[in-house]
Write a protein that binds this DNA or RNA. Sequence first.
DNA 1: AGCCTGACTCGGA
DNA 2: CTCCGAGCCAGGC
Length: 104
Amino acid sequence: MPPGDYARIYAAVRRIPRGRVATYGQIALLADLPGHARQVGYALNALEHERVPWHRVVNAQGRISLRAVSGAEFEQRRRLEAEGVEFDAAGRLSLARFQWRPRA
DNA sequence: AGCCTGACTCGGA
DNA sequence: CTCCGAGCCAGGC
């Protein structure tokens, strides 16, 4: 996978406004990498100190994807709630309400 | 090459 | 609604 791909993925994630979320597949599309939803996850997993709002990326079911190393999920939810995103009792957010829909 | 794994997704049971 | 199963693609062995 070309090194530049990660940069495009990060650029797409950076476009997500505060208080909104995007799905992995959606980011893949915006980065011109249709079908690479999993790679988006890898790219986010590889983040170190880059300034990228990784917490605004959730899966297609409006849930926070679990990592191999548990713990970061709580941090993600905490950050989203700090931006006004609400979760239901089942730990899921409403994509209908919070998903970012960039125009054309 | 083959096999396994993973911050994914969609559709069917 | 939840649980698979299959498809998906990149990476590491």
